[in-house]
Design a protein around this nucleic acid. Structure first.
Lengths: 240, 240
DNA sequence: GTCTATATGAGGATAGAC
DNA sequence: GTCTATCCTCATATAGAC
């Protein structure tokens, strides 16, 4: 509410600055405070949920007092909305970038495996944002979800294209429904943020298992033999 | 709080009665009100989260006034705890039952496919309980999670045994980590409650795709050819 | 068994000092 | 930029009528 709120306006200006400048000067002023608040909010949101997220808890985590938050964000809802959007946005940007950098002759299966790696990597990296998103998507008031839904639509389309390519290549096993398979795969990956414990399984193990499951689960003809030793680590490399 | 609370005691007695009697007499008195409240609580909890669940909303959904809830449950927390536990409990019971009824000579892969079917079926059936569980597991105060954690441990062990059998049969592809694969599979299934829309995909489509993905994703040697036409529907039948 | 009325407390948001 | 003090709203839980 109160759209003309002075602190909100100021905050928005700062944010635009951060986002636009690629690597101009240093992360700039002590306006890294904004980042601290955002990270803190993701942390609390993932653990307490939308309704349970107290400005006081966020402030504790960010090492300042609650009213200071209003200097950077117009309201509690505005802050939470940005957490949800940021998580979705960063994952999509990262996966997009990785796919763009793949050689043109990369096969559809390998592209999917690369996407699996990119998704998993960033999701586990940004686990507070990821779990905040996962747990609260269905619990947010609709009007706070517009940006997030746009992100997710775009991200869904990206995956849909990957599966489409696989299908057109005749490599998608015919008893699979493409859309359903895609949602099941993404679900398996998303869920990983809920259970992954770095002290129990290495990231490599999770990645290798996920990629193998996807590769063999999806594709009909096995171009699998010659990849056998390769699936262990990143698929971003050779494709010849 | 207030453990000796009269209404709580009364409520517990009624519940025990409901649970014990298999099909004795009718669902008994208007104490089906308790079920209505429980269902309503699952509905609200899944959409608003632990902290956002208001007794008033539950009351609206159950078609009574908020204070009436205290006749059946000792407190808000007690009610919520029971929702979380009920979801986990019913799924485990159902899957256990289905597995127990399988012929003794059922192969490990087929047993896993049967478990996939049972899990998916009950999860989509009880979607309010399922999504309540999924979204709020990480957001509940620890002291409300004891029963639920016990359920989940038992359920995890059940799946672990399924994968163990597959492994000992030499059918688990060697590049897979059993525990990780299991968590990824369950994750894919759990997530389905988040996106499944009966008006878009039939239950059959989801089930068939999930089973196929799991079967081909997990197993090394293909005993797949002779099952091809069978994976479409339940796997509970033939195994000869 | 279910209601109306109310005591009590927690948390978002603002004003204004520094 | 960040703090202290304060207002106001709203939800749990209880008391007690019907």
């Amino acid at each position: 509410m109160t759209p003309g709120h002075p602190s909100a306006r100021r905050a928005r200006r700062q944010k635009a600055g951060d986002g636009a400048a690629p690597a101009d000067d240093a992360p700039s002023k002590s306006s890294r405070t904004r980042e601290r608040i955002l990270d803190a909010a993701a942390h609390v949101l993932s653990r307490k949920g939308y309704a349970g997220t107290r400005l006081g808890d966020i402030a504790d985590q960010a090492q300042l007092q609650a009213p200071a938050i209003y200097y950077y964000f117009g309201s509690r809802d505005e802050l939470i909305e940005e957490v949800m959007w940021t998580g979705a946005q960063r994952v999509r940007e990262h996966v997009t970038k990785v796919l763009d950098e793949l050689p043109d002759d990369t096969t559809p299966v390998d592209r999917i495996c690369a996407a699996v790696e990119a998704h998993l990597h960033l999701e586990l990296e940004l686990s507070d944002f990821a779990t905040a998103l996962i747990r609260n998507s269905g619990q947010m008031p609709e009007h706070l979800r517009t940006r997030q839904l746009a992100e997710e639509a775009a991200y869904g389309k990206l995956w849909r294209n990957l599966f489409q390519d696989l299908h057109e290549d005749g490599r998608l096993r015919p008893d699979l429904d493409a859309r359903t398979a895609q949602l099941l795969v993404i679900g398996a990956l998303n869920w990983a943020a809920e259970w992954w414990n770095p002290r129990r399984d290495t990231y490599e193990t999770v990645l290798r298992t996920a990629q193998s499951l996807v590769r063999h689960g999806l594709s009909s003809r096995s171009q699998l033999a010659d990849e056998a030793g390769d699936t262990a680590r990143g698929t971003t490399r050779r494709t010849s």
